Simulated scan of single mutants.
Amino acid sequence: MLQVATRRNWSGGEHVPRQGGFIAAANHYSEIDPLTVAHFLVDQGRPPFFLAKSSLFSVPVLGSALTHLRQVPVYRATSKAGDALVAARTALDEGLPIAIMPEGTLTRDPDLWPMKARPGVGRLALTTGAPVIPIAQWGAQELLGRYARRPGNVLKRPVQHVQAGPPVDLSDLMDRPDDPRAHQEATRRVMAAITAMLADLRGEQPPAEPYDMARHKDHQDQQKDQA
C-alpha cells in the first residue's frame, strides 16, 4: 500500500543490525507510522515484532495489518500493561527486533516534533542490554494527518522520509538496569537522537525543550482552577 501511495527517501539502513535482537525506536505523529517503520525494517531484512498501543488495532486497514503481522497490543493502565514488556523481552532474547514508539501516542507538539517520551524504551534497553536504533520519519502526515481517519493527497504520492541512525550510546547506564532515573536518561538520549535526525530531514530547528504532555495538562488544570 505504502509503495503505491508514497515515494520513498530512506537512508541509514547500514545501521540496522543484520542479526540479533535490537530495539528500533521511532517518532510518532501519524497513525500509519507503525506501517512505515515496519516497511523500512522489512526492507532491511529485519521484520520487527511491534509494540503498538491497543487503540491502533481498531483503526481500519492498519488494525488488520498489525494483527496479520503478529504484533502485540499495549493496554495501558490495565492488568495487561506488563504483558507487552514481557513479550518484548522474550522476542529480544530470541534475537528478534522490537519496534516501539517511545512517546506512546501521537505527539501533541503543535508542529509535530517529538514530545517527551515515556521511560519504557529506556527501561527495556537497560534491562535487556539490547542496542537501540533511533529512527526518524517525516512525510506521513501528507498521507494521513494527525487524528485523521481518511487518507489525503494520495494522488500526489508524498515523499516518505525515513532515516535510521547508529545505536544510541547507553553504555554508562547499563549497570543501573533497575534505576528509574537511568531509564529516564536513556529514554531522553534516544529521543534526542531521533529529534536531531528529524531536524535534518525537515531542515528546521526543533524546540529547545520537547513538549511535555503532563506539564501541559497541569498548566491547563491550573488555568481552570483560576477561572
Rank of each mutant, 00 (worst) to 15 (best):
Q3G: 13
V4L: 13
S11N: 08
G13E: 05
H15T: 10
P17C: 10
Q19D: 15
A24W: 01
A25D: 04
A26M: 01
Y29D: 01
E31I: 06
L35E: 05
V37W: 07
H39Q: 13
F40A: 08
L41S: 07
P48S: 00
L51Q: 01
K53F: 03
K53L: 01
P60T: 02
L62V: 12
G63Q: 09
G63D: 09
A65R: 10
L66V: 10
L69E: 02
R70N: 14
V74G: 02
A87N: 11
A88N: 11
L92R: 02
L96P: 07
P97D: 02
P97C: 08
I100K: 04
L106M: 09
T107W: 07
M115H: 10
K116V: 12
R118D: 03
R118P: 03
R123F: 05
T127C: 02
P131Q: 07
V132Y: 09
Q137R: 09
G139E: 07
A140N: 06
L143N: 08
L144H: 01
R150P: 05
N153G: 01
K156L: 14
V159A: 08
V162W: 02
P167A: 15
P167Y: 10
P167K: 10
L170Y: 11
R176P: 09
P177K: 01
D179A: 09
A182I: 07
A182L: 13
T187D: 00
V190L: 04
V190Y: 06
M191Y: 11
A193F: 07
I194L: 04
L198K: 07
R202M: 11
G203S: 04
E204Q: 15
P206T: 10
P207W: 06
A208R: 14
E209S: 15
D212E: 12
M213G: 06
H216L: 03
D218Y: 00
D218T: 05
H219K: 15
Q223H: 15
Q223P: 04
K224A: 14
K224I: 14
D225Q: 15
Q226H: 12
